[in-house]
Simulated assay, not measured.
Amino acid sequence: MNPTVVIIARWVALPGKAADVAHWLEHAVKAARQEPGCLRYQVHHGLDNANLFVLYEEYVDAAAHQTHISSTAFQQIVLGQIVPLLAERQVDRLQAE
């Protein structure tokens, strides 16, 4: 059995763009949660920094995560709409040992 793949993404919106990021994230979450290999896709919004978003994603395996980042929704929503609104973007890929 392949270990699940966990993604922890830390995004910081450009000043004045947090509401736009949150808007597009609603669409990204809906699409990701419909993918068969997605076990969890949870967005957290900063309490002390309104521009901070942390995403916790879990996929059944690396292939499922690859399917996610290759999807039309990811390409159009995350890369096309959200990334241009970010000042910072860090993505860590992890797996259980």
Rank of each mutant, 00 (worst) to 15 (best):
V6C: 02
I7E: 09
I7N: 04
I8H: 15
I8T: 15
I8K: 14
I8R: 15
A9N: 01
R10F: 08
V12M: 10
V12N: 08
A13C: 10
A13T: 09
A13R: 08
L14A: 13
L14P: 08
L14G: 06
P15G: 10
P15K: 08
P15C: 11
P15F: 05
P15V: 12
G16P: 00
G16Y: 00
K17D: 04
A18T: 02
A18W: 01
A18S: 10
A19V: 04
A19P: 02
A19T: 04
D20C: 08
V21P: 01
V21K: 02
V21R: 04
A22F: 05
A22S: 07
W24R: 01
W24A: 00
W24F: 10
L25K: 01
L25F: 09
E26R: 05
H27W: 03
H27K: 11
A28L: 02
A28V: 00
A28F: 00
V29S: 07
V29Y: 04
V29L: 14
K30V: 01
A31V: 03
A31C: 03
A31G: 04
A32P: 00
A32F: 00
A32C: 07
R33K: 14
R33Y: 01
R33V: 07
R33P: 00
Q34N: 07
E35P: 03
E35V: 00
E35S: 02
E35Y: 01
E35Q: 10
P36H: 10
G37Y: 09
C38L: 08
L39D: 02
L39P: 00
L39K: 01
R40W: 01
R40K: 14
R40I: 08
Y41A: 02
Y41H: 02
Y41M: 04
Q42W: 12
Q42A: 15
V43N: 02
H44W: 11
H44M: 14
G46L: 13
G46T: 10
G46I: 07
L47T: 14
L47E: 12
D48E: 11
D48A: 12
N49G: 08
A50S: 11
A50Q: 11
N51P: 09
N51S: 14
N51Y: 03
N51Q: 15
L52D: 13
L52V: 10
F53N: 01
F53R: 02
V54K: 11
V54E: 14
Y56N: 07
E57I: 07
E58T: 10
Y59H: 12
Y59C: 04
V60D: 12
V60I: 14
V60G: 05
V60P: 02
V60A: 09
V60E: 14
